[in-house]
Amino acid sequence: MAAGGDHGSPDSYRSPLASRYASPEMCFVFSDRYKFRTWRQLWLWLAEAEQTLGLPITDEQIQEMKSNLENIDFKMAAEEEKRLRHDVMAHVHTFGHCCPKAAGIIHLGATSCYVGDNTDLIILRNALDLLLPKLARVISRLADFAKERASLPTLGFTHFQPAQLTTVGKRCCLWIQDLCMDLQNLKRVRDDLRFRGVKGTTGTQASFLQLFEGDDHKVEQLDKMVTEKAGFKRAFIITGQTYTRKVDIEVLSVLASLGASVHKICTDIRLLANLKEMEEPFEKQQIGSSAMPYKRNPMRSERCCSLARHLMTLVMDPLQTASVQWFERTLDDSANRRICLAEAFLTADTILNTLQNISEGLVVYPKVIERRIRQELPFMATENIIMAMVKAGGSRQDCHEKIRVLSQQAASVVKQEGGDNDLIERIQVDAYFSPIHSQLDHLLDPSSFTGRASQQVQRFLEEEVYPLLKPYESVMKVKAELCL
C-alpha cells in the first residue's frame, strides 16, 4: 500500500493539533497551500530580480507567473513527485505547466533550498508574528487579574506546605514575570531571523556568478533584492546548502521555554482548584465526569500541561538535527523538520489560546482563602504575639514557653481530632496574655502579614508589564474561544 493518505478522510490519521486544537490561522501558515504558494512567490521574486539585473526574462513571463501564483494543481504535483521522487522539481514542473512561456526560467540558477529553506524562514517569521500578540493578550488578562487582587491576602506555599502570606495578585505576578520573559525572547528570536537568500547549491553562489558572467556586484544585488522582497532586513552571508540548523534550535528553545512557563502556571491553577481557592472557567453544560456528576475538573489547565510537556520535548529534535548536518548538509534534517517545526508552533498556539481562555474567566473564592488563612495564621502570628507581650512588660522566655504549650495543644486538636485551630481562643482565655487581649485582632490582621506584596504588584505592572504590552494595544480586544 502506498504511503500517505487522504487526510480529510475519517479513515486516515490526522494530527489532533490540526484537527482538534490549533487555530485556523496557525494551521494555514503550515498548510501545503501556504507552503507551495510561497515557493511560487519566491520563484517570481527571483525572476523579477534577475530581470532587473539584466537576464533575458520578459515582462510577459513575469506576468504569467504572477497570474498563476494561486493556480496550484495539487493532484498534478503529487503525481509528479511520485514520478520524480523530488518535491521541488515536482512543483517546478507543475508551475511550468500553467506558465508555459515562463517554464524555462522558473528556478533559474537556484537549488531546492532556495524555495525550501527560504519558505521555512518566512513561515517561522509569520508563525512567530501570530504567537506574539496571543502571548501579549494572556499577559494582559493576567495583569488585569493581578491588579484587581493585588491586596487580597492568601496563604503562600513553599514545598506545598503553608508559608508566609502573600497576595493573590502577587502570586499571579510570578506567572506574568515568566511570560514577559517569554514574550521578550519570542520577539528577540523573531527579529534575529535572517533570510537564507540566493546562495546556490553549497552556499557559494557559483551558479549565479556564472549567470551574471562573473559580476560579483550583481550577485550581491540579486541576494539583497530577493531578501528585501521577502520582507527581511538581512540575509546570511555564510550558508551551506541550507541555512544553519542552529536557527531551528533557537526558535524551538524559546517555544519550549514558553511551554515550561505555561505548565507551571496551569499546575498552580490545578492545585488551587483542589484547594477550592480558584477555578478555571466551567461552562453551564460542561460535564466533569461521566460517573461523578459533582466533579469540576480543571480540564483546560490539564490540557495545557499535557501539550506543554510535548512542546518542551520537541527542542531535542533540532538539537540532534543540527549535530548531524555533515559538511554542507545531509538530508537527516528533512523529514524531522517537516514534523517538529509545525508541531512546535501548533502546540504553542494551542496552549496560548487555551491559557487566554482560562485567564479571561478565572474565578476566585475569597471566603475559602480566608478560612485557610484562619487555619494557619495563628501559628504564624506567634512571633508577633511574643513581641507584643514583651512590649507590655512580659518575659520573652516565659511567653515563648506559654505559646509553645498552647500551640501544641491547638495542633493536637487540628491533627488528632480534625478540629479547627483554636490557638487564639486559648490565648484569649489565658490570664497571662490579658495585657494584649485587646491587640489580638490587630495582630491577626492578614494584611499585616503580606509585606509589600501589593506595592510590588503595582510597581511591576507599571514599570515592566504595561510598557512591554504597549506595541500590542491594537490587538488586545480579541477574545479566545474554545470549541473543545
Rank of each mutant, 00 (worst) to 15 (best):
V168Y: 06
A256G: 13
K147A: 12
V429T: 15
D178T: 04
G288C: 04
F30R: 01
R194T: 06
P24F: 14
P318E: 02
Q286R: 02
D268W: 00
M380C: 04
R37P: 01
S301A: 08
G96E: 09
T158P: 01
P293Q: 00
I269H: 01
D349C: 06
D441C: 07
L165E: 01
I238H: 09
S334A: 04
M316G: 09
I105M: 15
D223I: 00
V457S: 05
D223Y: 00
R141T: 15
V364Q: 04
L130W: 02
L84F: 07
K229A: 07
K264C: 06
T94H: 11
L468F: 07
G231V: 05
M292F: 05
D216C: 09
M181V: 09
P56T: 12
R196I: 03
V475D: 10
R303M: 03
S434A: 11
W39F: 13
A256Y: 02
C113K: 00
K66P: 05
D73T: 12
L121R: 01
R190A: 08
D248F: 06
A102T: 09
S359E: 08
P471A: 15
D6W: 10
P318L: 01
T119G: 12
Q455W: 13
S151K: 14
G259W: 04
I424E: 11
T158K: 09
L222R: 01
L193D: 05
L423N: 03
Q397E: 06
N297L: 06
S253A: 13
D182H: 03
S151G: 12
K367I: 04
L461E: 01
Q221I: 08
C98V: 11
E80S: 13
E462Q: 11
G259L: 07
W43V: 00
A22K: 08
Q161G: 00
R245A: 01
F157C: 02
G361R: 14
Q408S: 14
K391L: 04
Q397F: 07
W39C: 07
F236H: 13
A453R: 04
A103D: 14
E64V: 11
R372G: 04
E60I: 12
L275K: 02
L362V: 09
N421D: 03
A322C: 12
R337G: 04
W175T: 04
A110C: 07
D248M: 00
E70G: 12
G169T: 01
S323W: 02
G5I: 13
R188Q: 08
N68S: 09
T330R: 05
K199S: 07
H97C: 10
E481F: 06
T350L: 11
N353K: 12
Q416G: 11
H86K: 00
K101G: 12
L42Y: 01
A2N: 15
M312D: 09
G240R: 01
S434I: 12
D268Y: 00
A342T: 14
H159F: 03
N421F: 01
S31Q: 09
A335F: 02
G109R: 00
E48D: 01
R149V: 10
F212A: 06
D129R: 12
H91T: 00
D191A: 08
P162E: 01
K264M: 06
A18R: 07
E463V: 11
V254F: 10
L307F: 14
A3H: 15
D129E: 10
V198C: 15
L362M: 12
K470E: 13
K199P: 00
Y294V: 04
D248S: 02
S289L: 00
A127P: 00
S207L: 03
L307S: 09
Q356A: 12
V475F: 09
P10D: 13
Y34L: 05
L271P: 00
I386Q: 03
E220Q: 11
L183I: 11
R137G: 15
I339A: 13
G54L: 08
W43T: 00
Q408C: 12
G214L: 09
R245C: 00
S9D: 09
V475R: 15
C98T: 12
T450R: 04
K233W: 07
M312G: 06
H310S: 09
L222M: 08
W45H: 11
E213W: 11
I106W: 02
G197R: 01
A18N: 15
K470M: 13
S395V: 03
L55F: 02
F345H: 06
S301W: 01
L406H: 15
A78H: 11
H93D: 11
A127M: 00
H7W: 10
L352Y: 07
T154F: 06
E279D: 07
E370L: 13
T154R: 01
L209S: 10
G4Y: 15
S448R: 14
H97V: 14
T52S: 12
L252W: 05
T94R: 10
L55T: 04
E148A: 09
I106M: 07
L108G: 05
K82Q: 13
K101E: 10
G5N: 15
F36L: 12
Q51L: 09
C172G: 10
I139L: 12
M389W: 04
M387A: 14
L124I: 12
Q161R: 02
E283V: 05
A78I: 08
G5C: 10
A410S: 10
Y294C: 02
V189H: 06
T167S: 07
L444G: 05
H107V: 00
M89K: 01
P10G: 11
M389D: 09
R452D: 04
D333C: 05
G259E: 03
R309P: 00
S257N: 07
A322L: 14
A388R: 06
S474F: 14
R372D: 04
T267N: 09
L211M: 14
D216F: 08
D73L: 05
S257A: 07
R372M: 05
R196C: 12
I385S: 07
R296W: 05
A381D: 06
I369Y: 02
P471R: 15
D117I: 00
L222P: 03
A260P: 04
L135D: 03
L155G: 01
V475I: 10
L440Y: 06
I339T: 14
D120A: 07
R33V: 13
N71G: 10
